[in-house]
């Protein structure tokens, strides 16, 4: 219990600092508080349903299903699955990290989960639409088109390295 409180310590200090900043009109702290709010309102709200879904995934989806779509037996399809899943993952990497970990412990390969996480940060649909409207469709199409081969190549290099070393991802209970 004590350890758990300690984990929040920095956060509490931060909140206190922001609170005091607003009381005494300290500009620097106020800006920090505003930045915090921008992120917190998006991120913290996204996490509870995401983790509920991860929990349901854990109890319902069998190891075999994951192995067949994201494991050794799945050929090129695993990249398509991984990128498809990434494009529809709401919340980008913040949500993709725990999802990738859960997939791994159900038998997904390194190449699949790395492709998934990397694609999750690059393929967010709402963000890409915004990008295209500001920087042009050509820019967005180029960025996405160039990234696919680079993502898959680097995922395979990493898979090779980590399979050779018998590396295991941490188990998050």
């Amino acid at each position: 219990m004590k350890k758990r409180i300690m984990e929040y310590f920095v956060f509490f200090v931060f909140v206190a600092f922001i609170g005091i900043s607003f009381l005494i009109d300290f500009n620097f702290g106020q800006n920090m508080g505003r930045n915090f709010y921008i992120f917190a309102k998006d991120m913290v709200l996204i996490l509870p349903p995401a983790f509920i879904l991860i929990g349901l995934f854990d109890v319902w989806v069998s190891r075999k299903t994951v192995e067949n779509s994201f494991g050794k037996k799945s050929g090129v399809m695993k990249y398509i699955y991984a990128i498809g899943l990434a494009a529809t993952t709401v919340g980008g990497t913040f949500v993709a990290f725990p999802v990738a970990n859960a997939l791994y412990h159900k038998g997904a390969g390194y190449d699949s989960i790395i492709t998934y996480v990397t694609a999750a940060s690059l393929f967010m649909i709402p963000m890409s639409i915004m990008e295209a409207s500001i920087l042009g469709i050509k820019f967005t199409a180029l960025r996405l088109g160039l990234s696919i081969p680079l993502i898959i190549i680097s995922a395979n290099i990493l898979k090779f390295i980590f399979n050779k070393n018998n590396y295991k991802l941490p188990e998050v209970e």
């Binding site: 956060f11 992120f39 917190a40 996490l47 879904l53 929990g55 349901l56 725990p98 209970e173």
Partner: peptide
């Protein structure tokens, strides 16, 4: 499933807050 999901959530929450 809910229990598992929430357990994972509360375990990682301080890290996410730190990140923020």
């Amino acid at each position: 499933g809910i229990k598992r999901g929430l357990k994972k959530f509360q375990k990682i929450l301080p890290k996410y807050l730190m990140l923020l």
